[in-house]
Lab assay of single mutants.
Amino acid sequence: MQRVNMIMAESPGLITICLLGYLLSAECTVFLDHENANKILNRPKRYNSGKLEEFVQGNLERECMEEKCSFEEAREVFENTERTTEFWKQYVDGDQCESNPCLNGGSCKDDINSYECWCPFGFEGKNCELDVTCNIKNGRCEQFCKNSADNKVVCSCTEGYRLAENQKSCEPAVPFPCGRVSVSQTSKLTRAETVFPDVDYVNSTEAETILDNITQSTQSFNDFTRVVGGEDAKPGQFPWQVVLNGKVDAFCGGSIVNEKWIVTAAHCVETGVKITVVAGEHNIEETEHTEQKRNVIRIIPHHNYNAAINKYNHDIALLELDEPLVLNSYVTPICIADKEYTNIFLKFGSGYVSGWGRVFHKGRSALVLQYLRVPLVDRATCLRSTKFTIYNNMFCAGFHEGGRDSCQGDSGGPHVTEVEGTSFLTGIISWGEECAMKGKYGIYTKVSRYVNWIKEKTKLT
Rank of each mutant, 00 (worst) to 15 (best):
T16L: 12
M8Y: 14
A436V: 07
E288Q: 07
E281A: 12
V4A: 12
A26V: 13
E320N: 03
A207D: 09
A317E: 00
F348Q: 09
G403Y: 14
P12G: 13
T458H: 02
D131E: 14
F123P: 03
G160D: 10
E231N: 14
G94M: 13
V451L: 04
H34T: 14
S182E: 07
E259M: 05
S107E: 13
G160N: 08
D338A: 06
G58E: 02
G125T: 03
H303K: 10
V273H: 15
K188V: 12
V359I: 15
E10H: 11
Q241F: 15
S220R: 07
D378G: 07
G58N: 04
I334V: 13
A436P: 11
C178K: 00
T271K: 09
N151F: 09
G349S: 07
C134G: 03
N306V: 07
F360L: 15
N203W: 07
P239T: 02
E53K: 00
V374Y: 02
D131K: 09
C407K: 04
A26D: 03
K152V: 12
N5P: 09
I309H: 11
T461F: 09
F424D: 01
R180W: 05
T215Y: 07
R373C: 04
G280D: 00
F251G: 05
F123Q: 06
G432N: 14
S350L: 12
L372I: 14
T186R: 12
A265L: 02
G355F: 14
V77A: 06
V278W: 06
T458N: 01
F55R: 08
E116N: 14
G105A: 09
K234N: 07
I428M: 06
S204I: 06
G357N: 08
R294G: 02
K438Y: 07
G442C: 15
A436N: 14
V353K: 04
Q241E: 04
I344M: 15
S411P: 10
F221V: 08
D150F: 09
R3G: 15
E27W: 04
N151C: 05
D95P: 09
G363Y: 07
T209M: 14
G230P: 11
P375N: 13
A397F: 02
L163N: 03
L211M: 12
R358A: 09
L163C: 02
S148H: 09
G439P: 06
L346A: 04
E79F: 04
C268N: 01
E323V: 13
V92W: 09
E67F: 00
E159P: 07
M6H: 09
D198V: 12
N138E: 05
F251R: 08
G439H: 09
P197G: 10
T461M: 11
T458E: 01
V228W: 14
R140T: 06
G409Q: 11
G432V: 08
N104K: 04
S255C: 09
I214P: 10
S255H: 02
K293I: 07
E193A: 15
H302N: 05
L367C: 09
V183P: 10
Q241I: 14
V419M: 08
F121T: 14
K51A: 10
V30L: 13
K137E: 11
T133G: 11
G94F: 06
C382A: 03
G106S: 05
L346N: 04
E82P: 05
L103D: 12
S430G: 10
D322H: 05
D212N: 11
A26N: 04
A436E: 10
V269N: 01
C119P: 03
T290A: 06
L103W: 05
K234C: 04
G403K: 13
L325H: 01
F221S: 15
T81D: 13
S406N: 14
K146L: 11
V353L: 05
T209D: 12
N393C: 03
V419N: 05
N222Y: 13
C141T: 00
E116V: 13
S114E: 14
D338S: 10
D93L: 09
D212M: 09
R75S: 07
E129N: 07
G355V: 08
P120S: 12
R449N: 15
N343C: 03
N151E: 09
V416Q: 06
G432M: 06
N42P: 05
I214K: 11
T81P: 13
T16S: 07
S107Y: 07
G246R: 05
V326H: 13
L321Y: 00
L52C: 04
I428T: 03
G50I: 04
F360V: 11
M6C: 15
A436I: 14
N100R: 12
V242E: 01
P12A: 14
E82T: 11
K247A: 15
T386C: 07
L244I: 08
T461H: 15
A173P: 00
D150P: 09
V227C: 09
A9P: 13
K152W: 07
Q370S: 11
G230K: 11
H34P: 11
I214R: 09
E285G: 06
N5A: 14
N452H: 12
P301F: 11
K89I: 08
V331D: 00
N295M: 08
F221Y: 10
E171L: 11
S169C: 04
E434N: 15
M437N: 08
